[in-house]
Design a binder for these strands. Structure first.
Length: 715
RNA sequence: GGACUCGUAGCUCAGUUGGUUAGAGCGCUUCAUUUACACUGAAGAGGUCAGAAGUUCGAGUCUUCUCGAGUCCACCA
């Protein structure tokens, strides 16, 4: 079937009859699938298409097996991504956050959310997803807000939350802190500068290597590795900052690499994580020569206001003039960039909120083997990461998201510190009562919002109504099945495990399936900037939903990265489009061209009947097993091979010689095949199931009942 | 530096616990010409399963090493 109107009609019929709805009161056994919420921005890509195709096939299969299936959809507000998309749009209107102010900006944001949501939501049904739409959840809605408050409050009461000035990865373009897991590295050819710092009082120098001379303004010490062969004699002496004359203690620290550069390191706690750690242990101060917008601060004197790249050259020129440069080497290294906007990330010190993850990770490690990872090696990958867990930085300097539910008493806590707790309240609304410390009532809410993942990671239970103990929560948690792209295995998957165990005292899902990353023929990720993407909606337009789905299943081997182009996808889709046509023709042959006086009673005793039924039973068994073990690529290939080659090419051809006698077997095999195909090709199978002969009742369906309501064949 | 994945036909890929002659789709060659279906059917060419060694009665599959491709983590002064 290649007519989207027909598909829409069938989809509407399913919806109208409530066939996608889960029923918490059902006596059937529950089977729950949690759809990964796509980001609010952007149109569906191949990754979504493959996820949805897999999820939906399993949901349909389990329904036919007699389970009460919950396939729960949702949408993620995608904080940073959404905000930057909106801000780009606003810039075209010569508007920005500052001009609008928080309230007006948020109004615009919600408007924009509705626009984006509508445009991309319509595309979902195109894939035939049999999701329980009335249960759909958006991560910013009230239900999730309540869950977020509970989460935050619980962490707070358990002493797992803290706020403080720490070195964070700052994206100057998105203007917020991001996490390590949200960064990428790019190989860049840069320079490594060897800078001489004069030792105070004597005519000697200590030389350090740096790639970032512009941060020299923010140096607070020089560190050398223990028992340095040349510099250990300078320990305890003072070096002079060549750019501003600041006095820098020379210290010893084992974290300085012996074999890198000169074995001496300038310590800039404000702009480097290692330096920050060393500085903390040695009680050094923190200075910033670069600000949060990526420009030089007043500390850089006449370079103030310049961008980092420019300031780097200017600083190098100055040092050159001062004769402080010993050597400049070419230097290729990886530079951290923001995963989303590819801007060079600036490590700097900022006031942020963190969650202590160690206790959560420890519990997760204990229960990790209760989850069936597919493929299996992800168990080890997640385990290794949990063992080396870092605290989770949860605050973002954005407006799009859940605002941190913390209120500070402006009268006695004007710096918005956290620690004593009496002058801080955790609440969604302004506290109605005065501050316990000073009896003042001037509350100010924390300015930042929470990391998008702070709520995404509650997904397995917030979507079911937690913290309320709903029927759904008790029935569908833990989820039977979850799937994910490998890219977000730490950001999302590992954290859901930790939070699930922490708040629900149980793993979030029993089966965790990782599909591959769809790549181009050269193995590169698909991206807008490379222009190598394939739009799944184009494929659906050209070849129909079912053909596109079938093409996707052939790439659904667990954990394998498919390499595709528009051309290779077209080839496969065309193949399955032809397969759908084959099914139409089989129907025509078997039912519409049924001979007069054909046998009606099944009597599969003829050698050919016995053989095809045996093949069919083998196929049923093996397709069932392959779906259960999530080898959808094998299940679809077997069906294709059986129907096309064994049934159509061989049995159907042979049957022509003895058509009247073969009729019951033809009908039986064909009907069974439609059921077996339904999870993968929902529209074509339903269309044939409902097809009417000479304007009468449907031939296959009893009383027009959907094929979705038939029982999964057993051998 | 640590971990993981992969290397099979011209291309994209299957090949679940080791078991006859290694498969599919596309592409290619030849034939069939209106058949339920040309969005078709029949036949065929095409592979030292990256390389080497080992375990085994038997290895695409298990082990070790080499070469090549890619991913993730850590570090990058």
């Amino acid at each position: 079937m290649n007519n989207q109107r027909d598909e829409q009609k069938i989809y509407d019929l399913w919806q109208k009859n409530g066939l996608f709805r889960a029923d918490p009161d059902s006596l059937k056994k529950p089977y729950s699938l949690l759809m990964p919420p796509p980001n609010l921005t952007g149109s569906p890509h191949m990754g979504h298409a493959i996820q949805h195709a897999i999820m939906d096939a399993i949901a349909r299969f389990k329904r036919m097996q007699g389970f009460d299936v919950l396939l729960l959809p949702g949408v993620d507000h995608a904080g940073i991504q959404f905000e930057s998309t909106l801000n780009k749009l606003l810039a075209k209107e010569n508007l920005n956050k500052e001009k609008l102010g928080r309230e007006a900006w948020l109004k615009r944001a919600w408007q924009f959310k509705d626009e984006v949501y509508q445009s991309f939501h319509g595309t979902w049904s195109v894939f035939g997803i049999s999701a329980d739409w009335p249960k759909e959840v958006f991560t910013l809605e009230q239900k999730v807000q309540k869950a977020m408050l509970k989460e935050f409050k619980t962490f707070w009461e358990q002493g797992l939350l803290y706020k403080g000035a720490y070195i964070v990865q700052w994206c100057p373009k998105d203007n917020t802190a991001i996490e390590d897991v949200e960064m990428e590295y790019e190989e860049r050819k840069e320079k490594l500068y060897y800078i001489r710092y004069k030792i105070e009082g004597i005519e000697k120098f200590i030389t350090v290597a740096t790639a970032r001379p512009e941060t020299i303004y923010a140096d607070t010490a020089i560190a050398v590795y223990p028992k340095h062969h040349r510099f250990s004699k300078f320990i305890g002496k003072i070096a002079v900052n060549p750019l501003n004359g600041n006095l820098l203690p020379i210290i010893e620290d084992a974290r300085v690499e012996k074999d890198f550069g000169t074995g001496a390191l300038k310590i800039t706690p404000g702009h480097d994580p290692l330096d920050f750690a060393i500085g903390k242990d040695h009680g050094l101060g923190i200075l910033h020569s670069v600000d949060k917008s990526g420009r030089m601060t007043k500390l850089a004197r006449d370079l103030a206001g310049l961008k980092v790249a420019e300031a780097r050259e200017k600083a190098a020129e100055k040092l050159e003039k001062l004769g402080a440069i010993e050597e400049i080497k070419d230097y290729t290294h990886s530079v951290p960039v923001c995963e989303r906007c590819k801007t060079v990330v600036e490590p700097l010190v900022s006031e942020e909120w963190f969650v202590k993850m160690k206790p959560l990770a420890e519990k997760a490690l204990k229960h990790l083997n209760e989850i069936n990872f597919i493929p299996k090696n992800y168990h080890k990958i997640i385990k290794d990461w949990l063992k080396e867990i870092h605290d989770w930085s949860i605050s973002r300097s954005l407006w799009w998201g859940h605002r941190i539910p913390v209120w500070y008493c402006e009268d006695c806590n004007p710096n918005h510190l956290v620690g004593k707790n009496e002058d801080v309240e955790i609440s969604l609304e302004q506290p109605p009562h005065p501050c316990k410390t000073c009896k003042g009532g001037h509350w100010i809410q924390d300015d930042q919002v929470l990391d998008t993942w702070f709520t995404s990671n509650l997904w397995p239970f917030a979507t079911l109504g937690w913290p309320e103990q709903t029927k759904e929560l008790q029935r569908y948690y833990p989820w039977s099945f979850e799937l994910s792209a490998p890219e977000i295995k730490y950001l999302w998957i590992a954290r859901m495990i930790m939070l699930g165990l922490h708040f629900m005292d149980d793993i979030p899902w029993k089966n965790m399936f990782f599909h591959g990353t769809v790549r181009d023929l050269q193995g590169r990720k698909m991206s807008k900037s490379l222009g190598n993407g394939v739009d799944p909606l184009d494929l659906v337009d050209q070849w129909g939903t079912d053909a596109t789905r079938m093409a996707l299943y052939s790439y659904a081997a667990p954990g394998r990265d498919p390499r595709v182009s528009r051309q290779t996808m077209d080839e496969r889709c065309k193949n399955y489009r032809n397969f759908a046509t084959k099914l139409q023709n089989l129907y025509r042959f078997i039912y519409e061209l049924k001979p007069e006086g054909a046998a009606t009673e099944p009597n599969f005793s003829h050698r050919e009947d016995v053989e095809i039924v045996r093949y069919l039973n083998d196929t049923i068994n093996s397709v069932t097993n392959n779906i259960e073990s999530l080898h959808l690529h094998l299940a679809t290939e077997e069906l294709y091979d059986f129907i096309w080659h064994k049934f159509a090419d061989s049995y159907v051809e042979l049957s022509k010689k003895r058509r009247p006698a073969a009729q019951p077997c033809l009908e039986y095999v064909f009907k069974t095949c439609l059921k077996l195909l339904h999870p993968f090709m929902p529209f074509t199978t339903e269309e044939l199931w409902q097809k009417q002969h000479h304007g009468g009742k449907p031939v296959l369906s009893e009383a027009g009942k959907s094929i979705m309501l038939t029982e999964w064949p057993g051998a």
